[in-house]
Every structure is written in C-alpha cells, then in structure tokens.
Simulated assay, not measured.
Amino acid sequence: MTTKDSAARTTPVQIIVCDDHALFREGLARLLDEQPDFQVVGKAADGQELVEKTLELRPDVILLDVVMPGMDGIAAVRTLQRRNIPVRILMLSAFDEERFVLDAWKAGIHGYILKDTATQELVRAVGCVADGEVWIGEGFLSRIMDKYRAAVEGQRENKASQPGGLTPREGEVLELLATGLRNKEIAARLFVSEKTVKTHLTHIYQRLGLRDRVEVALYAIRHGLVDIGPS
C-alpha cells in the first residue's frame, strides 16, 4: 500500500488529530507537523469536539482513537458520515480486537492502524488515505491472521473431540464402527445393549448427513478419527 509521489501535492494534507490522552495527542500532532506534506490544523480530545472542529476546519484527513470518553471514535465517524462531510478517516487505536475493527469499517473509516506502528508506516498510512486509498497496516494484518489461525485450530480441536456436534458416546461409537466392528461387538466394548448402539448410529447418520456404515468409516478416516496406518 503506497502513497502517490509527494511531489505531486500542491498543498499540504490538512489533518485533525483526535485522542483523549493529551501527551499522545500533542506528540502525534508534532510528529505529523514535521512532515513536509502534512499540516495539523486542529486537535480534539473527544468525538464531539472532533465533529465540531471538522465542520469548522474542513480537514483532508482525520486521525482519531476508537475509545474515548463521551462520544467515542466510532460514534464520531457515524456522525460525520450522516452529515456527508467529505473527509478521509484513519482510525489510530491500541485495540486490534475484531469487534472494534468491524464496527469502525462499518461506520465508514478509510484506514485502521495500531498505535505501536512505526513512524514511517504511520506517515505512509496518512498519505495513502489522503490520496483516496484504503490502508490496513501489515503488522495489524499479521496479528489478525494469527488470531484467525488460532481460532481455526481451536475449532479443529473441538471438532476432532466431538465431530459434527456428536456426544462423547456417539463419538466412541463412530470410531469403533469405523474400525470395522459390528453393532454387537461395539455394544460389548461399551457395555451397552445392541439396541442402544443402533440408536447412537441413527443419531450419527442424522447429525453428520451420512447414509450407511461405509460413509461413516470414510468420514472417520477423512477427519483423522481412526488410525489407517499399516497393522
């Protein structure tokens, strides 16, 4: 995600910085003001002040935090969108939780970047958003993907322990059936009646969408529920 050549800019990108922490707000404003293509025209401590200053100053880009007292960042974005204010919005946050990200994008932001991002990447992000593009920081994406992979692995583990929403007992029946045991043999292994085994099999067929013992065996093999190595 790159920005256009700064030489193409005829005027600096005018920016408002909004964050409820004064030291961070002032430091960020100073950092951006030091860039030759940027000009910080206003600062705000909460969403309401941001909306008022945006209406007054009409900046090109807004940098704002998500969580703030009073009107938070997402509420401020929604307010600006309802008023059809032509401003580009870059959310700068300490949070990479999915709920914050999704809510912010739905509200109408044009970029999302984390507060621990390196200065050079932040500068690129502001320029990118100012040029009409969308920015998602690489570091942020990697964190989200790590969480996604962990969630997928967790789902796989859950499915492996109780595939298809089966009960633990139904899972045992499925595994034994997949090894080639007959209903009577399964009943003996589990110390239950053959009728109980048949009931479990009926539930297994229904829950997994399978028709017969062959499909059950194939399902178990595909999902790693039985050992198909050499005996």
Rank of each mutant, 00 (worst) to 15 (best):
L201H: 12
A125S: 13
V51T: 04
V66E: 07
D103Q: 15
F191D: 15
L122K: 01
Q206D: 14
L225D: 04
R182K: 14
A8N: 13
P230C: 07
V173D: 02
G132A: 00
V192Q: 07
I15P: 07
L190F: 03
V152I: 15
V152G: 02
A75H: 10
I186Q: 00
D5K: 12
L122H: 04
T3P: 10
Q120H: 08
A151I: 05
A125I: 01
M68F: 02
T54R: 00
E133C: 00
R78D: 05
L174H: 04
R99C: 06
G180I: 01
T79H: 12
E185H: 03
L57K: 15
V173M: 04
I109R: 14
E157A: 14
V40K: 04
C18T: 05
I62S: 04
L28V: 09
Y148V: 12
D116C: 00
G42C: 10
E170M: 05
L57F: 05
F95H: 15
G165C: 06
L63D: 04
K159G: 11
A29F: 02
A29Y: 00
G111K: 12
R124K: 08
F95R: 12
R58T: 12
A94T: 12
R156Y: 11
P86I: 03
L55N: 11
T196H: 09
L102E: 15
A220V: 05
E215P: 02
I15Y: 14
D60S: 09
E133N: 07
D212Q: 10
E97W: 00
R156K: 14
D146H: 08
A130H: 02
V40G: 06
R78F: 01
L31S: 09
W105C: 11
P168Q: 01
L201I: 15
H223Y: 15
L166R: 05
I113H: 07
K4C: 07
A7W: 09
D116G: 03
V17M: 13
I204P: 04
L102R: 12
A118C: 07
L80G: 01
D19R: 04
L218A: 14
A29L: 02
R99E: 15
D65L: 05
E97C: 02
Q48T: 11
E157K: 13
A151W: 05
G171V: 11
K147I: 00
M68R: 03
V41M: 06
T10V: 13
A217T: 15
P36S: 03
L181Y: 12
I144W: 11
A22F: 13
G132K: 06
E215L: 00
I136C: 04
M1S: 14
S6G: 04
